[in-house]
Design a binder for these strands. Structure first.
Lengths: 108, 108
DNA sequence: ATAGTATATAAGCATATACTTATATTTGTG
DNA sequence: CACAAATATAAGTATATGCTTATATACTAT
């Protein structure tokens, strides 16, 4: 049984809009860093740091292939994360919500 | 459909050991503030502030009865929180983990 | 009314978090 | 080798967070 504080630390990482979107997108397929950088309105180091945190807690795993690093989910042993992601909308919905917030920023 | 950022804000509140324990205990029954104050090694205002955050996001509801305020879960419309709490251990396990950490503090 | 108990709020503070920019590292290509 | 692209790391900073102590509020009982 995982420790309460361990579970809380995992869930804390899900409590960020960007990371929650990343994980939800990863339900569908693996993604490389540069794809995330294009999608999110944020610098490359910011994305890299989010992925590092997720990797540090074993929530994602990386696969270096040539110049690119592909990330995928690694939550087989974390049912509480699976349970959350099962409830998340599909990638298309996530992407449209990200776009909407970008438009909001432009309009302000 | 709830907004991505709304879900993330909810999950952020679950990403704290104390609040996650509170919510898990609330699966079993309603609790009053003073019970939480006894269980957790923390001041009464600290507990009160955690409950206020949970109430502000509609995750718990309160019921004032005389001198006491009883809190209970209000997550019927939040399947991703239900899904997490379904995966959490029972109250006995939570309480023993809290006690363990208190003993650790004493021993240091 | 006064005192005691339960809870909430306010203010302050130390630490954590999520970015930014600058720079380093790794890999592919001419 | 030199350069470009993809990614990671470092350092700095503004804001958020989770506690503390002090105080206010609400209810109970004598």
């Amino acid at each position: 049984m995982k420790e309460l504080s361990n579970i809380a630390d995992n869930l804390k990482l899900l409590g960020d809009k960007t990371r929650l979107a990343i994980l939800t997108l990863l339900k569908e397929r693996e993604w490389c860093v540069c794809e995330f950088v294009e999608i999110f309105d944020m610098s490359q180091p910011a994305i890299s740091q989010h992925l590092r945190k997720l990797k540090a807690q074993g929530i994602v795993k990386e696969d270096k292939r040539g110049q690119w690093v592909y990330y995928s989910l690694h939550i087989e042993d974390k049912p509480y994360i699976q349970a959350v992601l099962d409830q998340m909308p599909d990638s298309k919905t996530i992407l449209s919500q990200l776009n909407k917030s970008q438009i909001n920023i432009v309009c302000e």
